[in-house]
Nucleic acid binder design. Structure first.
Lengths: 342, 342
DNA sequence: TTGTAAGCGTTATCAG
DNA sequence: CTGATAACGCTTACAA
C-alpha cells in the first residue's frame, strides 16, 4: 500500500502524522477549513520529514483546473514575442502558475493544436499573442471550435491582437502606430515613402498598412510603393535589395515591424546607402533590437500586454467576451530618420 | 453520473459505443492490446461524435509521467536561449510533447523552484540551458537535492553548460571558443585586447575568460584588461563607457557573449569611435543579433544544443549521468574586426 | 477479444 | 475540529 517508490503522497504524510488524509490535505494546501494547532503542527512535521510535495496532477484532476497558463506565440525567437512572454511569466510565476510557451510559427493549425493540448492539461487560460488571418477559412473555423470547447471547460482565452474569433482583447492601436510613424516621416519632408508589409492576410499587417495609407492620403501624398513581407528580417533584406535595384531609392522606408526594418537597414548600409542621410528607416515595436540599432520606431508595450493578459486570466475576469483594452503606443525617434535633404 | 459538464470522458464514449471503458481506452490510446475491428469502429465513431479528447492529467496521474518537457533558461529574451528553446520545442512538438519554458533569471533558487514544479507535473525531463554558479553554496546544495528527487521520480535531467551537479551534458567548448576568437584577434596584429566578462562565479564566464587568457599567454602577450559584466547589453555599454574614459582604447575588445559585445559596439560607435578601424570587437554565440549587426563572433550551435537534449530525453536515454557531448563551435569573421593599422 | 476492478493522489461532501 | 468515502478520468493486471 505504502506506495513503493513514493514517500511523497498525502497518504504517507497522514499515516506518519496519525491523522486522516482529509486533515493532512487541509493543512498542507490552502484550505480555510479549521484544523487544531497541534494537529497542524504534526502534519507539517510529517510533511517536512517526508519531503512531501503535492501532485499537481492529482490536484488538477480533481479540481478540474491546473495552475498552468499558456501563451501561443508566432515566433519565440522574435523579441516582440519574447518580451510578451516575459510579461506573462512574471505575473504568472509570482502567483505560482506555470507558463507554457507554444511556438505556433504563425500557423493557425498549430495554434489550434496547442490550444487543444493546453485544454487537455486543463490550463486555466490561453493567450494568443500573435495576429491571425483575416476572414473565415476552414482552419479558422476549426480554431473557433477548439476555442469554444476550451471555454466550455472553463478556460479563459485572451488575444493580444485582432483575431477572427471572439475574445477579450488587450492590444494596441496598430493603425494609429503606423499612422504616427508615417506622419512623422512626412513631417521630416519625405514624400516617396515605401512600406514593407507583414504577412498578407493577417490583421496586424492589414492595420499597419492601413495606417500608412491613411497618413499619406491625409497629407495628399501619392501612395508609396508597398513591398510584400512577413515580419521577418529576411523580408526586409529582400525588399531592400529590390529597392536598390530600382532606379531611385525612396525617401524613407517603413518596416511593418522592427525585424523587417532592421533587415532593410542593414541591407541598405551594406550596399553603401547612407541611413538616414540618403534614406530614413523606421519600424514598429520598439523591441530591444531597435534599441540596439538606434532605430526609429513606435514603442508597443509588449511586456505590459503580456502582464495584463496574465492578470486578467488569473483574476478569473471572464468579463465581456468582446471587451477590448487598448494600450498606448508612442513614437520613438532615433538615429535612422532625419529631415529630407536632397 | 454522466458528468454534467463533460460530454468528454472515456466513460461517456464507452457508454455510447456500448463497450467497457477498458476497451475504449485500448482503441483510443496507442495500446497494442487486440480489439476487434468492428468494436474499434464503434468506439472511434462514438469518440468522434462526442468530440472526445483524453484528459492528459488523468493519463499522467496513472502512468506517473506526463508528456511535458521543461527547459530552464537564464533569460527568455536573450536570443541565445530563444534559439535553444526553439530546438527543444521543435523536436518535442513533433513527438507530441509540450515544452515548458522557465525563465530563471539566472538565479539558482528560481531554477530549483521551477524544477520542483516540473516534477510536480511529472515532466519527463528538464533541460538546464544556462550556466550555473561555480562551487558549493547552500543554494547549490538545495538544487542538487531537488535534482535527486526529480531523478528518483524518473525525470531525466540534462545540462547544456558546465554545472556543479552531475548530469548528462550537451555543450560546447567555451574555453576553446574564446581561445579561437582571441587567437584570431592576435593574428590580426592586435595586442592590447580587453575582455568584458560574464557574471562572476558562473562556469561559462569562467571558461570563456580562461580561453582568453590562455590564448594571450601562449602568444606571450600581456594579459589584457578585464571588465566585469553579466552577459547583458548594458554591461557591454558600461564597459565601453569606462574604456572611453581611459586614456587609450584597447586594440580590440571581446564580449563574453554577443549581447555584451553589441553593447560595447553600439556605445563605441555612438561615441564616435570607429569599429573596426579604431577598435575591433567580437562576441560569442552567433545569435541573430550578431548576424544583424555583422558582428565577428564564434558560432555556437544553440538550436542543435536544444534539439539534441530534447531527443535524449524523449529517447529515454538515461545513459551515463556524467556523459558529455561537445558540439563543435566555429569562428565567424565579419565586419567588426580588421587588421590593426595604427 | 472483452470486461471487471484496483488503483493513481487529491479534493470535497457528509457525518460524527 | 476530524474522518470516511465518493469522485476525478484513465491504465492495467487479471478474469472470463
Amino acid at each position: 500500500m505504502s506506495s513503493a517508490s513514493g514517500r511523497g503522497s498525502l497518504a504517507d504524510v497522514s499515516r506518519l502524522a496519525g491523522v486522516s488524509v482529509a486533515t493532512a490535505s487541509r493543512v498542507l494546501n490552502g484550505s480555510t477549513h479549521p484544523v487544531a494547532a497541534a494537529t497542524r503542527e504534526r502534519v507539517l512535521a510529517a510533511a517536512r520529514e517526508l519531503g512531501y510535495s503535492p501532485s499537481a496532477l492529482a490536484q488538477a484532476l480533481v479540481t478540474k483546473r491546473s495552475r498552468i497558463i499558456g501563451v501561443i506565440v508566432g515566433d519565440v525567437v522574435d523579441p516582440y514575442f519574447a518580451e510578451i512572454t516575459r510579461g506573462v511569466e512574471d505575473v504568472a510565476g509570482r502567483a505560482g502558475y506555470l507558463t507554457i510557451v507554444c511556438n505556433a510559427d504563425r500557423r493557425t493549425s498549430a495554434e489550434r493544436q496547442y490550444l487543444d493540448v493546453l485544454r487537455d492539461y486543463r490550463a486555466v487560460g490561453a493567450i494568443f499573442a500573435g495576429s491571425g488571418a483575416v476572414g473565415e477559412d476552414e482552419e479558422g473555423r476549426e480554431l473557433l471550435r477548439s476555442i469554444d470547447r476550451a471555454r466550455d471547460q472553463g478556460m479563459n482565452v485572451i488575444a493580444l491582437a485582432t483575431r477572427s474569433f471572439p475574445a477579450q482583447r488587450v492590444t494596441v492601436d496598430n493603425r494609429g502606430a503606423s499612422y504616427d510613424l508615417t506622419d512623422y516621416l512626412l513631417s521630416l519632408g519625405h514624400r516617396r515613402i515605401a512600406f514593407v508589409s507583414g504577412p498578407t492576410g493577417f490583421y496586424t499587417s492589414f492595420e499597419r498598412l492601413e495606417g500608412f495609407n491613411a497618413a499619406l492620403e491625409r497629407s495628399g501624398v501619392e501612395p508609396g510603393p508597398v513591398y510584400d513581407g512577413d515580419f521577418s528580417y529576411e523580408a526586409g533584406q529582400a525588399a531592400a535589395v529590390r529597392m536598390l535595384a530600382e532606379r531611385r531609392l525612396p525617401d524613407a522606408i517603413i518596416g511593418a515591424n522592427d525585424e523587417t526594418a532592421i533587415g532593410v537597414l542593414t541591407s541598405l548600409r551594406q550596399a553603401g546607402a547612407e541611413v538616414p542621410d540618403a534614406v530614413s528607416v523606421g519600424g514598429i515595436g520598439n523591441t530591444r533590437l531597435a534599441h540596439f540599432l538606434d532605430l526609429t520606431t513606435v514603442s508597443v508595450p509588449t511586456y505590459e500586454l503580456g502582464a495584463i493578459a496574465a492578470r486578467r486570466i488569473l483574476g478569473g475576469e471572464t468579463g465581456e467576451v468582446d471587451a477590448v483594452t487598448i494600450l498606448p503606443h508612442r513614437l520613438v525617434t532615433r538615429a535612422t530618420t532625419s529631415r529630407r535633404t536632397q
